[in-house]
Amino acid sequence: MSFLPAIPEVLRQFFKRPATNLFPAKYLPSSVTKYLKSVQEGNAAINPPVETPPNFRGKILYDRDTCIGCKLCIRVCPANAIEFLPDTKKVRIFVTQCIFCSQCNDACPVDALHMSDEFLLADEDRYSENMIVE
């Protein structure tokens, strides 16, 4: 089959394991919310996603106590996702605005900002508790 090289290739592949990572489940559950609930209750297990490497840039972590309120992170944030709170001289970060460049982490003089490896951040509400870091 030199003129159709894909045919031997697919026949070989037929007997190999598929490459798909079965995250979060093999097939779409009939109800996603019910499935997630049963996972929370421990009745079902989620197939884990592909592992994130070290230095992955996920949801931002903010160390409020270390922060000195220098506003440098606000100056370097490309997405204007960081808001300064003048009363407390601390910042508030809107995760829905964040573009995960982690430039604020690099800029922070006191190392108060870090990136976690959390990336499953879908939410129905832009301003829910999970979507605002302060």
């Binding site: 994130t52 490497p53 230095n55 992955f56 840039r57 573009i99 995960f100 460049c101």
Partner: peptide, 24 residues
């Protein structure tokens, strides 16, 4: 994509270039 994620921290928007060099 995996190698890029491993080197830069993200699969798609790498964010590695900085004015005056690279960040990582």
């Amino acid at each position: 994509m995996d190698v890029i994620e491993y080197l830069t921290g993200n699969r798609v928007n790498y964010g590695i270039v900085q004015v005056g060099g690279v960040r990582r």
